[in-house]
Structure formats: C-alpha cells, structure tokens
C-alpha cells in the first residue's frame, strides 16, 4: 500500500532528492514543508500517513515540531532524516517515539522502515 507522505526539510535540494526517492517507490507526496511551523500546519491540514522530518531547520527545529505533532496525534508516524549523526538528537527522537532516525543518504534503511510501516497499516 502506498503511503501519503509529508516531506519536511528546509533545503529545497534535499526535499527534491527525498521526494524523488519516495515517488520512485510508489508513495504519494501530499505536502512539503520547509520549517517546523509549516510542518505542524500541514500535518493538521493533510493528516499524512508518514512525515519525513529534518532536524535542523530555521524558525522551528524538527524535534520541537515532532513533539507538537505527537502531542496532538500520538499515532503520528514520524521518521527523522538527518545528516547529523548526533546521539543527543537520536536519543530525543527515540524518546519521542519516532519511527526512525536515519541518515538522509541511507536509502536502503529509509526503504526498509517505510516498508515495515506499510505492513503494519
């Protein structure tokens, strides 16, 4: 089953790469956000099956946005995609109940986690 995905990243270049990868796997990109604030607004409006969330963003970072989204919808599927391999962020993401904390370039891991989520749905 294809997933309806909301892609959150402040870099247009990275959003494009992530979107292309997800589309090539047959998923539908229902929205793009470039900050945590936009992500929260779009999550409320679109109710996606999955949110791919960057960590470092202007206005509001991904961890804060994820906290707010999970606060409003504890069943939200949030997958952190980042280039920073920081333990502090990783621990925080796990504590929040995120579906994963993966390097943006690690396509096989992204694919595996999304497949697992699809099977659970």
């Amino acid at each position: 089953m294809a997933m309806r995905v909301l892609v959150v990243d402040d870099s247009g270049f990275m959003r494009k790469r992530i979107i292309e990868e997800l589309r090539s796997q047959g998923h539908a990109i229902i929205g793009e956000a470039r900050s945590g604030i936009e992500a929260i607004e779009l999550y409320r409006a679109l109710k996606p099956d999955l949110v791919t969330m960057d960590i470092t963003m202007r206005d509001m970072d991904g961890i804060t946005a994820a906290k707010q989204i999970m606060g409003e919808d504890p069943k939200a599927n949030i997958l952190f995609l980042t280039i920073l391999n920081d333990e502090k962020y990783k621990t925080e993401a796990e504590r929040l109940g995120a579906k994963g904390f993966i390097n943006k370039t690690d396509t096989p891991s992204i694919t595996r986690i999304i497949r697992e989520l699809e099977q659970k749905q």
């Binding site: 294809a2 309806r4 979107i19 047959g26 998923h27 539908a28 229902i30 929205g31 793009e32 409006a45």
Partner: peptide, 14 residues
C-alpha cells in the same frame, strides 16, 4: 500504486 500529484503542495496550497 497511488496517483502521484504533479507537484507537492506547500502551505498555503496554491
């Protein structure tokens, strides 16, 4: 496979 939109909406959707 889901129908893929031509472009992804960014808030506000326009």
């Amino acid at each position: 496979m889901a129908t893929q939109p031509a472009s992804s909406p960014r808030f506000p959707i326009e």
